[in-house]
Write a protein that binds this DNA or RNA. Sequence first.
DNA 1: GAGGGCCATCTTGCATACAGCGTGTGCGGG
DNA 2: CCCGCACACGCTGTATGCAAGATGGCCCTC
Lengths: 249, 249
Amino acid sequence: MVNQANRTQMMRALLALREQILSGEFKPGERMSELPLVERLGVSRTPLRLALASLEHEGLLQVLPTGGYVVREFTLTDIRQAIELRGVLEGTACRFAAEHGATRRDLRALREINDAVEPLVHRADYESFERYVALNATFHDRLIKMAHSPLLERTLATVLALPFATPSALVLQHAQLPESREILIVAHRQHLWLVEAIAAREGSRADNVAREHARLSLTNLEIVLGRRGLLEQVPGASLLAIETELEPV
Amino acid sequence: MVNQANRTQMMRALLALREQILSGEFKPGERMSELPLVERLGVSRTPLRLALASLEHEGLLQVLPTGGYVVREFTLTDIRQAIELRGVLEGTACRFAAEHGATRRDLRALREINDAVEPLVHRADYESFERYVALNATFHDRLIKMAHSPLLERTLATVLALPFATPSALVLQHAQLPESREILIVAHRQHLWLVEAIAAREGSRADNVAREHARLSLTNLEIVLGRRGLLEQVPGASLLAIETELEPV
DNA sequence: GAGGGCCATCTTGCATACAGCGTGTGCGGG
DNA sequence: CCCGCACACGCTGTATGCAAGATGGCCCTC
């Protein structure tokens, strides 16, 4: 959102607050009173208020009708809809990229990322997963840039700001499970298809593949939900309202 | 976005600023210095800063790397992409509505709106057009609500905040031209199709129809661009960078 | 004993003062 | 005449004081 460096007090408050909220130091519905936060973060009320307003724009906080903010609670439905919407937006970005025509340079960059990812999907160590996640993020960043639509980029960024919505939010948590490594194989194959489709200017195919690709996150979500211990490691998990429909493993 | 009543100084500043920007009282690239605005709007710097931050989030303002805001300039490409993205989001909303299953009550409401619109598309007086625009807005509002996705609603709202992006932004301006009345006929027919598709739970069809429906705004845009006098009546027109590719009538 | 009203306290919204920094201008030197 | 430096102005970021409103508790009354 605001990509300024953390030089200003407002940015420091924003970054600290976001991290603390996502790491579960505040409960959903908890009131974010300003004075305690001032003490906690060591900034004055003015930049703190700006940070709070920014977090409200991001969707992590809600405004009370009487004034003031509370931590927002997310339901499973919220997360599913966020992932689905991410798929729609990323699909649109891929379609734009295909229709607009990708430069050789962009295509080569994507292919190089895929080449680097390929050996990683078969390895099981944690460092490989971390590297996979990083490359995955680079791939998606490059893709959205190729749509040449600042508005789309901005819109997608707002959706990604929500917990659980980002492409690799849930990968690291369950990657250790052997059953879920198949997901990485599928995801990698979809990346190959995406580059193929964009290179061939097949916008509709690129759109569809990207949507299905995003839906892998739904599968990840189901897997993580099945293992209670895993869920709690995910940033933002504390903001999730576990509905009673929690399926037993 | 922030739907609070205009009780607070911040909301008054926000509403006043937005209106003044869209009505062309500031030129694109013009710096929005705080002190002159304080004098102009009669509010203090604190709520003004909040309003500026909100407008930046809306996309009407840009932040300078040195700090401070400037009025953003929109290109034709920006507008086209905004309209296209609106189509994607409205299409998704219609698909969600179809997949989720619409209540009889919602469907009846949509059909009633369409019934009320039907005679209006054949009339040429200004009051009919105004009534058409109002009913059109109600129709679209109802549709997005039927998706049952607050996130989608919020996302669409951000896109609609941009000038020229809203469904009926350009209707009133050119409705007087006889050649453009056909557009209303087509739009009305698409509304009928949308209700049909949603009622039949045909999500894909609803999606496609909604996308094409949004693209009618592109046609409107082309028409308005062809008549210089019309363009200047549209709110936000002053923010538009007319490229040299302006086609002569 | 319960409910309602009043008071105290806390909280937010707003205004303003202050400091640091970037910018623009003017003057002097080459 | 042009370029560079320095000073001054204006601007933003920040801190803090103040007032109005909401909320919760306590007491009084029925």
